[in-house]
Design a protein around this nucleic acid. Sequence first.
DNA 1: AACGCCATGTAAGCAGTTACATGATTCA
DNA 2: TGAATCATGTAACTGCTTACATGGCGTT
Lengths: 181, 181
Amino acid sequence: MALEHAILVSLLERPGSGYELARRFERSIGRFWTATHQQIYRVLRRMEADGWVTAEEIGQDGRPDKRSFSVAGEGLAVLAEWLRAPVQAEAVRHELAVKIRGAAFTDDAGRAALIGEVERYRADHETLLSTYLNGEKRDFPDLDGRDAGQRLQHVVLRGGIAYERMLLDWLDDVLDTLRAL
Amino acid sequence: MALEHAILVSLLERPGSGYELARRFERSIGRFWTATHQQIYRVLRRMEADGWVTAEEIGQDGRPDKRSFSVAGEGLAVLAEWLRAPVQAEAVRHELAVKIRGAAFTDDAGRAALIGEVERYRADHETLLSTYLNGEKRDFPDLDGRDAGQRLQHVVLRGGIAYERMLLDWLDDVLDTLRAL
DNA sequence: AACGCCATGTAAGCAGTTACATGATTCA
DNA sequence: TGAATCATGTAACTGCTTACATGGCGTT
């Protein structure tokens, strides 16, 4: 119920086409809100029909034309209203936790396989942490003199970094526990 | 695609009715996998039809009869296979992060409202952390001598505790950042 | 020649939510 | 008397995913 809002924020940070939005949802904003291109195009069409965003046709040569979207006044009002509303409880889906509890009901071979999976998962998140840290060095090198948008993007990134560090520590705990069974 | 598996794990930990499962999904297991009772009943019917679980009719007096579900051999096999499969990337939905980045595009009043919301959110998670810590003291008082299931449930709970602590620290960072804008 | 990128879409289906319904019992 | 708990469901809908489609351009 808030893909619309994620799109509004992304378009306010920088206008762009459905395709560009889809790319962002694979990278930066997708770290905390996922969406496929099909879903983005559909929602974008609805938002345009409702007057939340406006499209500008941009002819390109060497590439297909595109429709670049910007947030309209109506969209800004919708966003402002949403920001005031209570933060909804998230629908948590932590598959790994289910698997860990499930490990009590499998054999040694299954448990060994799970340990391998957790190690792979841990390696992925170690990579992700590096990506975040590199992004931080690149995008937020100085401590002040930046605008509100920059500082807010930075605090969200710091959240991602804190999460990944916590996760890596916990995964070590998980691996110790699984190995000691 | 894994509510089935969460139900299997929960029923292996303790057989129960759809209603009882729904209650668990509001409390313990619901911390990392949410589901409504409607969804649970529907999936349970399918799982029964597929022979993953079996039901036992239990007549009660003073209360409605219930159907207590247990995991069948087929269900155990399905679970074992799932445990060996790669951990799927989670569909992240972190509404608060979107709102924080959205705060760059609202006025002082909107920002003040968001600060209030973050404070409320923080208070909720402080309560949740207490609940976890109390649960830990109650359910895992000793350091060893427990079975595999207990140790695995404990490590998952430690994950929840680590997450909440990380979150509270980050929310302080967020509040500082919002107030300093 | 083949692959990946840019750009946008349709179609089918499943998962999950919201709203509503029933009915007995226990507790404040 | 009213609310909460136990217990199970139906119906309608929305959101989202998966699979498929098109077509030109740039790179290896």
